[in-house]
Design a protein around this nucleic acid. Structure first.
Length: 112
DNA sequence: ATAATGACGTCGG
DNA sequence: TCCGACGCCATTA
C-alpha cells in the first residue's frame, strides 16, 4: 500500500495532480502554468513548470503555456504543429495562442 | 547555510 | 511589440 499511485505512477502528489489537470484540458484549448497552480490551489507557476519539465512528456504538454500565450522554450515548433492540428485559436501573426479564446477555465462544458 | 538555476509572472523602459 | 530587471518557489551545487 503504502500509497496508491492514484493515476499515473508513483509520482509525488503535486506532480500527479498537475498531470491530471493537464489531462483534463480538451484539444483546442490551453491553460497557463499559473492557472494550473491556481486550479490546484497550491504551489506556484514555477513549481508547475518544474513538474512539466520532468514529466511533461506523459501528457499534452503543448496545452500548457506561458501567461503571454507563448509555448515552452525549445518546443515551440512541435507545439505550434499541435495547435494547427487541434485548431487552437492563435493571435494574428500566429506566433502565440489567443488565450482570450483558447483558455480553459476548468468548465465541464468544454471537456464534454 | 548561501548561491545559482529553471518549461513562470508582472512591471518598466 | 520586444527586452531587461525583480520577485516567487523548490531543487541542486
Amino acid at each position: 500500500m503504502t500509497d496508491r499511485p492514484d493515476d499515473a505512477t508513483d509520482l509525488p502528489r503535486f506532480a500527479a495532480q498537475v498531470l491530471d489537470v493537464v489531462d483534463l484540458v480538451p484539444p483546442g484549448q490551453v491553460v497557463t502554468y499559473g492557472d494550473v497552480a491556481e486550479y490546484l490551489g497550491e504551489g506556484g507557476p514555477r513549481r508547475v513548470g518544474r513538474v512539466m519539465s520532468q514529466h511533461g512528456g506523459a501528457v499534452a504538454w503543448w496545452r500548457v503555456l506561458r501567461a503571454d500565450g507563448t509555448p515552452a522554450p525549445g518546443l515551440e515548433s512541435r507545439a505550434f504543429a499541435e495547435y494547427r492540428r487541434e485548431g487552437t485559436p492563435l493571435r494574428p501573426g500566429g506566433r502565440r495562442v489567443d488565450l482570450s479564446r483558447a483558455r480553459w477555465t476548468g468548465d465541464p462544458a468544454g471537456s464534454a
